[in-house]
Nucleic acid binder design. Structure first.
Lengths: 227, 227
DNA sequence: GGAGAAACTCGACCGCAGTCGACTTTCTCT
DNA sequence: AGAGAAAGTCGACTGCGGTCGAGTTTCTCC
C-alpha cells in the first residue's frame, strides 16, 4: 500500500506531464514557459524542479508518450516478410518522418538524444533502448533466415544503421534534404552499401540511381563543390 | 577605399570576436554573459546583435579560428602515403579529439553543426565545407591511386564517413565510449566495412577485434541488452 | 497522540539572452 | 556646406529558466 506522500507525488508528476503534453502540443516547446506549465499543472514553479532537472527533461518525458504511439503505429505497418533492406529503410524513414513532423520538436529531440546534456543523459538513454531493441529484432529475424552474412557483426551493423539515421536527420536540419522521398533514396543506398558492400549500388533500381544523381548534383551545386 | 562606416564596422566586429575568444577561453561559453562580452568588447549589448543573430553564432565564429588552427595541425600530421583507411581514421579521430577536448564546447559545437537552428544554419554550412573538401581530397588522391573500387560513389562514401564521425561523437556524449583509444577501434572497424564491405572485419588486427569484443560486451551490459 | 525529523511545496528572486526605441554618427544629394 | 535619410549604437527593459529558503505536510518513533 502506497503512503499518502508517494500517492501525491505520482499524482503531481502526472499532472505536470499532462499539462506539458497539452501545452507543448498547443503552443510548442519554446513558447511554453515554466510558469505557465506550473500554473496549468496546478503546482508551484519550484515544485516542477523536484520532479525534473530541467525543461528539456520534461520534453523527453513528453516525447516518451508520443514515441510509444509512433513506434506502435510503425510496428503495425512494418512487414516482417519484406526483404531486410526494405524493413530497415521503412523503420529508419518512419522514425525520421516522426521526428521531423514538427521541426522545432525534432531539433530539440535530436539534440538531446544525440548530444545529451548532463541532465538528460539518463532519459535519453532510456528512450533509445526501444529503438535499439527494435533494430535488434529485425536483424535477429533476418539472421535466422540467413539473409545476413554469417560473419558480419550485428552490433556493428546497428552502429552503421544508427549512424545513417542520425546523418539523414542532420541533412534535414541543414537543408541539404527537403523531402522524405529524397531521404528515402539516400537511406536506401546507404543501407544497401552497409549490408552488401560498396558495390551494392548495383542493387538499386535505375529510378533510384537517377534520383540520387539529381540529389548529388543539387548538393554539389549548393556548395559550389566538386569531387 | 573603405568608408569610415565600413571601417568601424570591421573594427567592432573584430573587437567582439577577440573579446569572445578571450572570455570563452578563460571562463567557458555558458559562463560568459552577453553583457560581459559587450563590456569586454567595449560596445553596448544591443550592438552585438547587429553583428550576430545569437550567442551561438558568436560561438561558431570563435570556433572558426580554433578549427582553422586544428585543421592545419591535423594536415601536418596526416601522412598522404599511408593507406587510405589509416588516413580516414586519422582524420576522423583527429576531429573527434579536437571537438571533445573541451566537453562543453564540443557539445554546443556538435549540436549547432549537426542540428543547426535557423540562426546558425549558414555559419554551420560554411564551417563544414572545410571538412567536406578535406575528405574529398583524401578520397580523390586515393581514387587516382586505384585504392578505391571504380564503381563506388565518392559522395556516398563521404556520407558514410560523415555518418560515422557523428555517430562516434555521439557515443562520447552518451558515455558509451570514454576513451579515444576505444573510439579509434570503433571508427576503424566502421570505416573498413564502409570501404570494403561487411566482411572487412577480417582485415582488422586480432588486437582490434579483441578490443571491439570488450567494447561490445561493455555496451551490452550497460544496457542490459542482448542480441 | 504528539514531537521532532524529513520530505515536499511555493513564489519571490536572480542572472540571463535577446528586444526596443531614443539617440548619435555617417552617408548622400542638392 | 548642410539638411534629411540611413545606418549604427546603446542600455534600460522584458520574460525566461532555474534557485532558494521559509513555510507546510507527511512520516517516524517513543
Amino acid at each position: 500500500m502506497l503512503g499518502v506522500r508517494e500517492q501525491k507525488k505520482q499524482q503531481t508528476r502526472k499532472a505536470i506531464i499532462d499539462a506539458a503534453i497539452r501545452l507543448f502540443t498547443e503552443k510548442g516547446f519554446e513558447q511554453t514557459s515554466m510558469s505557465e506549465l506550473a500554473r496549468a499543472a496546478g503546482v508551484g514553479k519550484g515544485t516542477i524542479y523536484g520532479y525534473f532537472k530541467a525543461k528539456e527533461e520534461i520534453f523527453l518525458a513528453y516525447c516518451e508518450a508520443e514515441i510509444e504511439f509512433a513506434f506502435a503505429a510503425l510496428d503495425r505497418k512494418l512487414d516482417e516478410q519484406a526483404p531486410l533492406v526494405d524493413q530497415l529503410v521503412a523503420q529508419t524513414i518512419g522514425q525520421i518522418t516522426f521526428v521531423t513532423s514538427n521541426r522545432e520538436f525534432g531539433r530539440i529531440f535530436a539534440r538531446e538524444m544525440v548530444f545529451p546534456g548532463e541532465s538528460s543523459k539518463l532519459a535519453s538513454r532510456e528512450l533509445d533502448m526501444r529503438y535499439l531493441s527494435k533494430l535488434g529484432e529485425v536483424l535477429g529475424r533476418s539472421q535466422q533466415l540467413g539473409e545476413l552474412p554469417e560473419d558480419s557483426d550485428p552490433l556493428l551493423l546497428i552502429a552503421h544503421l544508427h549512424a545513417i539515421y542520425i546523418l539523414v536527420l542532420s541533412t534535414f536540419y541543414r537543408d541539404d534534404l527537403t523531402s522524405l522521398e529524397d531521404a528515402e533514396v539516400l537511406v536506401r543506398l546507404l543501407v544497401l552499401q552497409v549490408l552488401y558492400g560498396p558495390t551494392a549500388l548495383a542493387l538499386a533500381t535505375a529510378e533510384e540511381r537517377q534520383k540520387w544523381g539529381n540529389l548529388k548534383q543539387q548538393f554539389l551545386e549548393q556548395r559550389e563543390l566538386k569531387l
